[in-house]
């Protein structure tokens, strides 16, 4: 811990002012997005901005009436949950093996999935999935998103599994259990926080994915990040609708982040702090 000594009062003021400035700078775009989503097109385009105005819900009505936003939302949700669960099923044992059996090169292989530029996959994947008649189906999108979610799960879980004391596993094995049994019955139950962390991160990045969804989704599986481009149409930019749609897209992940912040912080720091 950094023990704090007596601080000059001027420094204290500076500190508070600095913190407030940081806060305003980082929150302003969200505020602007929300405010604009309640304005009419011509109010949005008026400078200086009106801070006090009669809010209109027209933009939100337009978003939900003009397009099937509820369905897009449901699609995004199903795909993100599916890709997260599947990533857990594949990723957890892999992370365990990498952590307990010291397989750093394998860990690196999985990281390669994050290194390959996403465009590389678009045409080949479409060729495969369309031949398998899987374009515009949930399984295809979930498989594609798993390439985003699995590396997250693995990277969050490796340091977590490394941190589990050997005694715990050994104790289970002394009782005659196999290691895989110990993994299921002993390791996983105490790994709840780690799993939650990995799942949240995976969910968020799947929810936000644009490129893979763009190519593989269709009428039945369109996701929110793809749908937002519909507000930049041929004959107009509907700023109000665009901002309302942005609010709708980001709100679920923002709420999720607010509710689970301590897990996210752990997820972000998992790989880094352990080194």
């Amino acid at each position: 811990m950094n023990p704090r000594k007596k601080v000059h009062p001027a420094l204290n003021v500076l500190y508070v002012v600095g913190l407030v400035l940081f806060f305003v700078a980082f929150m302003f775009p969200f505020a602007w997005m929300i405010i604009s989503s309640f304005k009419t097109q011509s109010e949005i385009l008026t400078m200086p901005p009106k801070w006090i105005f009669t809010p209109t819900f027209k933009n939100y009505v337009e978003v939900f009436e003009g397009q099937d936003f509820l369905m897009y939302m449901l699609n995004s949700f199903v795909i993100a949950v599916g890709a997260t669960l599947a990533a857990l099923v594949l990723g957890l044992p892999a992370a365990y093996a990498i952590a307990r059996r010291r397989l750093p090169s394998l860990g690196f292989t999985i990281l390669v999935a994050r290194i390959v530029p996403g465009i590389t996959f678009l045409i080949p994947w479409f060729m495969i999935f369309s031949r398998l008649k899987m374009v515009d189906t949930m399984p295809a999108l979930i498989l594609a998103h798993m390439l985003v979610t699995m590396p997250f799960v693995v990277w969050v879980m490796i340091p977590f599994f490394e941190g589990i004391p050997n005694d715990l596993i050994d104790a289970a094995r002394v009782d005659g259990c196999t290691e895989q049994y110990a993994f299921l019955r002993v390791v996983l139950p105490i790994s709840g926080p780690g799993i939650i962390t990995g799942s949240i991160m995976a969910f968020v990045f799947s929810w936000n994915n644009f490129m893979f969804s763009m190519i593989l989704s269709g009428v039945h599986t369109k996701t929110l990040p793809v749908a937002i481009f519909n507000f930049l149409s041929y004959s107009e930019v509907n700023w109000g609708g665009l901002m309302a749609a942005s609010v709708i897209i980001t709100l679920p992940v923002l709420v999720l982040a607010l509710m689970t912040q301590k897990y996210i912080v752990r997820g972000l720091t998992a790989g880094a702090v352990k080194g």
Binding site: I215, G218, K222, F229, N230, S233
Partner: peptide, 13 residues
């Protein structure tokens, strides 16, 4: 089965 896309996205797709 009609699918409506923004202009740039349509070309890509």
């Amino acid at each position: 089965n009609m699918e409506v896309l923004a202009e740039g996205n349509l070309t890509q797709k």
